Amino acid sequence: MSGRKFSVIPFEANRVWRSYLGGKLLDTLEGVKEAADGSFPEDWIGSVTAANNPDNRSPEEGLSRVRLESGESVLLADLISEDPEFYLGKSHVDRFGTDMRILVKYLDSAIRLHFQVHPRAEFSERHLGVSKGKTEAYVILSVRDDVKEPYIYAGFQRPPSREELKRWIEVQDIAAIEASFDKIPVKVGDVFLIPGGCPHALGEGILMVELMEASDLVVRFEYERGGFTLPEESRYMGKDLDFGLSVFDLEAKPASAFRCEPRELRRFDDGSTQRLLIGTDRTNCFVARSTCIEKSITKSENGFYIVLVTKGSGILRVGELTLALEPFSRALVAAGAGEVRIETEDGLELLELAGPRF
Score class of each variant (00 low, 15 high):
73 S>F: 02
112 R>H: 09
154 A>V: 01
162 R>N: 02
89 G>A: 11
148 K>E: 12
74 V>N: 09
73 S>H: 03
136 E>L: 06
116 Q>R: 15
95 R>E: 15
66 V>F: 10
78 D>G: 12
146 D>L: 13
90 K>M: 13
65 R>C: 07
170 E>R: 12
59 P>F: 04
96 F>V: 14
139 V>F: 11
66 V>Q: 06
97 G>E: 11
170 E>T: 15
108 D>A: 08
128 L>R: 09
56 N>S: 06
56 N>A: 11
125 E>K: 13
79 L>S: 00
95 R>Q: 14
171 V>H: 08
58 S>R: 10
156 F>G: 03
92 H>I: 14
58 S>Y: 07
82 E>M: 09
111 I>Y: 11
88 L>E: 02
76 L>A: 07
146 D>W: 14
135 T>D: 05
76 L>S: 02
131 S>Y: 13
121 A>Q: 07
100 M>I: 14
139 V>N: 11
76 L>K: 01
85 E>H: 04
74 V>R: 02
138 Y>K: 06
168 W>F: 11
90 K>L: 14
175 A>T: 11
156 F>N: 08
65 R>Q: 15
125 E>F: 06
84 P>H: 03
155 G>K: 04
85 E>R: 05
85 E>Y: 04
103 L>I: 10
89 G>E: 05
110 A>H: 12
56 N>W: 15
100 M>K: 14
84 P>K: 00
167 R>P: 01
73 S>Y: 09
118 H>T: 09
101 R>F: 05
156 F>E: 04
64 S>A: 13
164 E>F: 07
71 G>D: 10
170 E>F: 04
154 A>L: 05
147 V>N: 06
165 L>H: 04
154 A>N: 00
148 K>N: 08
62 G>W: 04
142 S>A: 15
134 K>T: 04
139 V>I: 14
131 S>G: 14
65 R>T: 12
65 R>N: 08
143 V>G: 08
154 A>E: 03
160 P>L: 06
125 E>W: 11
83 D>Q: 05
67 R>T: 14
69 E>V: 13
77 A>N: 05
64 S>Q: 00
94 D>L: 12
80 I>F: 09
167 R>D: 13
101 R>N: 08
152 I>S: 00
